[in-house]
Nucleic acid binder design. Structure first.
Ligand code: ZN
Ligand code: ZN
Ligand code: ZN
Ligand code: ZN
Lengths: 139, 139
DNA sequence: CCGCCAGACGTTATCTTATTACGTTATAGG
DNA sequence: CCTATAACGTAATAAGATAACGTCTGGCGG
């Protein structure tokens, strides 16, 4: 994770960050690009460059299993602890949580094995409470 | 995961599976394709179709953070338990292990939250024992 | 003030990864 | 034999990510 200090965001970084915050779920880089064409974005690299910084600042997470990005749910805590995500396959909602005990278990494995752990990806797939409780898509 | 019963493999499935077993690390779909051009493979879809089945049979895993695939390290056990992977960023080796306690913790979170969990992705990044112990790349 | 550097930016082209669409072949059941 | 199903072959295209280049800015030493 190795979080970087966070200077003030540049214009492009702010635009990308606010696009992610407006969205009610994860966005792909190209979806962000389309969101921001009105603001003058023209090329994927503008999005990827901003995302790279935002991730380094801990404001944005990448969902590996979706090739998509979400704004951090609790940026204030800068959650040094690795984050985990529960992705609803019905409605697309993503819940971010802190997998304290799971991370501890993985760290223990790493220590035992001699693996120098720098980063952990945890992504859960399934259905959120609302979607699994009712047949209709959740609000 | 929902593992499927495993009938005998088709020719293409066998070829893809053996390519993954020959490799000493994960392969991308296109790397597999190149491996198998000599055997008559011509198009990505031949690889993706075989991978799809092999994953369903539990013989192959996809590494989400690499967009790559590995043969299962212990296919005999059909590890209903979700697998976890430790990826060395120096030498590229991948170690598969059973994250029992971590999975338990994630299941507990899901139960508490009302999330109907079907699948868990756990991928660790860092350096393997050999690479972090010695400056030279590990054997 | 001037020259220089580093960081952000813009643009194009290209590369990698994955899927859609459609037609063919092999095979098992009735 | 007829037909349904699964696997296969091929071409085209979509989706995701990066390389390579040049420009523009603001800060700083001289
Ligand atoms: Zn977060
Ligand atoms: Zn849902
Ligand atoms: Zn396995
Ligand atoms: Zn290594």
């Amino acid at each position: 994770m190795t979080l970087q200090a966070q200077p003030e965001l540049t214009k492009n970084q702010s635009l990308v960050f606010s696009a992610l915050n407006r969205a009610d779920g994860p966005l792909t880089a190209y979806a962000i690009l389309d969101e921001l064409r009105a603001e003058g974005f023209r090329a994927p690299l503008q999005v990827y460059r901003a995302l790279e910084r935002l991730q380094a600042y801990g404001l944005v997470h990448r969902l590996e299993s979706l090739n998509a990005f979400v704004a951090c749910s609790h940026p204030q805590c800068a959650h040094q602890e690795s984050a985990a995500f529960a992705i609803c396959e019905k409605c697309g909602q993503v819940a971010e949580f802190s997998p304290g005990r799971a991370t501890d278990a993985l760290k223990a494995w790493a220590t035992q094995t001699g693996f120098a752990l720098t980063n952990t990806t945890i992504e859960l797939r399934g259905m959120c409470r609302l979607c699994s409780g009712a047949p209709a898509p959740c609000a």
